[in-house]
Nucleic acid binder design. Structure first.
Lengths: 193, 193, 193, 193
DNA sequence: CCATAACCGAGACGGTACGTCTGGTCTTCAA
DNA sequence: TTGAAGACCAGACGTACCGTCTCGGTTATGG
């Protein structure tokens, strides 16, 4: 539906990729520096060297900009790969342990809380919350595989379990609670018997 | 602990309980009606029939007012009691199922997301997140009891499990995901084997 | 002097004359109605249908707005022309008498006191005080002429005398003193022998 | 008029002279330091070590406190005595010259403008404006004497002339105009021929 | 020798206005 | 047509004072 008649061309200047990128970079930088609710459209515009209107033209709200920044993977540092030792429980313990350690670090804790605040007001950020915190489709597939391979009980609701794990991380961030190194292993042990 | 050093005495007029109550009631009402981030100090003051300065005198920020409102139990509707059938898994399934149903209702979903947004910026709200969502000390004690009675595996980390359950509810709220009626039962089944 | 360097041009929207005019009209109206020190920026903004920031963008203070309103001649009613009968003393007596009568009227008295209060805090209003009270350049020129024509003593310091006359009016306003009809004539008689 | 029925006496503690004095001193000090319109009741109370209510109990407004401070002679520095050389014109020239010099000094200029602002909103300050600026009853009497002694023209309206002189000083203050040393002599020469 | 009454410092209260900041829209000009 | 610049209306921010009102505590009469 955005196709145009053959021979026709858009008239006037076309959307500036430079402006778009610059907005997303500014957003990422300010989000990391000052958190979601000190983020302002004016601040982004100024940091990006872009007019406010340019932002309002292409995004509907602050949270939409943040959502796109998140999608582009510029918002949060990448998460560690899940190891593959053959022992799914050990692998998940390692992964969850790293996640717990991550949110225990004050800077990252603030980052995650900001992300949660953003998710609270923007549906599409909420939808990507799992991914953003490292609970990617790949991970889910891995667990699914293991279950089908008989390493896990067959009645385990994989999606629910992953959500609960992400939830544990989120609540930990919101409570500013630090964690014993063992907690991840115990939780995985309880969840995936 | 609010006692003052001997010999010292408060001088001048004393804090008005009427003003305090009126602020908390206004906060509860506006929070429910318009959500955390449309909440304003001016709005609360005006709704409460109180001067702005009276709010700034006793609270440091919007989130502090919300925190106190939460503590007073005025922020969220009360949660259902956990039934006591003797079967701890069934009881928890019932309880979690009700919680899931609760956040599936759009109004309550918005309420919970607002609460999460508030928790993201205020530590003491974060600390009370479990309680606020119904995962009270009573509940934890119940599970602990059942474990000691041998109904649950002895190595289960009760606190972690409860956090994961609350997390599941929170993430569900953030993802605006609705749930099959079975999800609660399955999750409990997986968690508490 | 507000011209900008050749080649440079203003970018962005241009100042709204409608907003400016509307602010000055609101100021004139509120000044007349309630006096200088019941005048508020918020009141002006609201009466003018303008955002507060628009006032702060273009004026530094309440007194600056009042000064500009005064310069535009919107603040005070026009003053009577000085008659020209050929007899400079009689003409000035008439003029000063009218001025005295003017400040004797309570509404106008309050207006003049407000103007004086404004002048006390804003230099440019002070500078225009003479003009605002009707002691215009034209009047000074008339006296100068008469002196040169030999109708008045040659050593008379015209500017000082005019200032003293305006001062007499001002002090009369500040003392809320009413005046015998004769005072103006007597004072002129004493001043311009 | 504040007398009470014979036989009756006030019961209870009597007005604290210390508090009264302390308020007036604080007022004088703050008036000199920051001017009339930066003067606040709270500032005075705090500076005086007195409760706000104590001020409101005894004075009706800020300007009333200032008026009383003025009456007590604490508001402005004392003015020079008028010399008595026998030549009334020379004496007045000296006096007015000193007054002009006084208001030419920026600190005093601000002081006089503050006084004028106070007079603009408080009648009793206005009434004392002449006295406060040194045009005391003594001075008026002196001129009156000289007139009766035939040194001045008999038809001179003494009160009007004095008011005009004070007015010249006031307008000079409002215009922030500095003066040639000769101005006072010339003006007296013109006024009292 | 109380009881009454008016004083005092302190400070909370409902308000108004301040001057600043941001949100979202609209206008102007250059490219 | 886009993008920068920036003015516009709107409205919340947090602060400063306003004038009124308790609150305890402190004098001074006068019954």
């Amino acid at each position: 539906m955005t196709a145009r008649p053959a021979g026709s061309r858009p008239r006037g200047a076309v959307r500036s990729e430079a402006a778009r990128t610059s907005v997303l970079e500014a957003t990422a930088s300010l989000f990391a520096a000052r958190g979601y609710d000190h983020l302002t459209i004016e601040g982004i515009a100024s940091e990006a060297g872009v007019a406010k209107q340019t932002i309002y033209r292409w995004w509907t709200s602050k949270s939409a900009v943040v959502a796109e920044t998140l999608i582009e993977g510029m918002l949060l540092p990448g998460h560690p790969e899940v190891p593959e030792t053959g022992d799914i429980r050990a692998d998940l313990s390692t992964w969850l342990g790293q996640l717990f350690q991550f949110v225990d670090e004050p800077t990252h804790n603030a980052l995650v809380r900001s992300l949660v605040a953003a998710a609270a007001e923007n549906e599409s950020i909420g939808e990507r919350l799992n991914d953003a915190l490292g609970a990617t489709a790949t991970l889910t597939a891995r667990i699914e595989c293991a279950r089908e391979a008989g390493e896990l009980a067959p009645e385990i609701p994989v999606q629910e379990v992953v959500t609960a794990l992400v939830g544990a991380v989120v609540v930990r961030a919101l409570r500013r609670a630090t964690t014993t190194p063992d907690a991840a292993r115990q939780l995985i042990g309880a969840l995936l018997h």
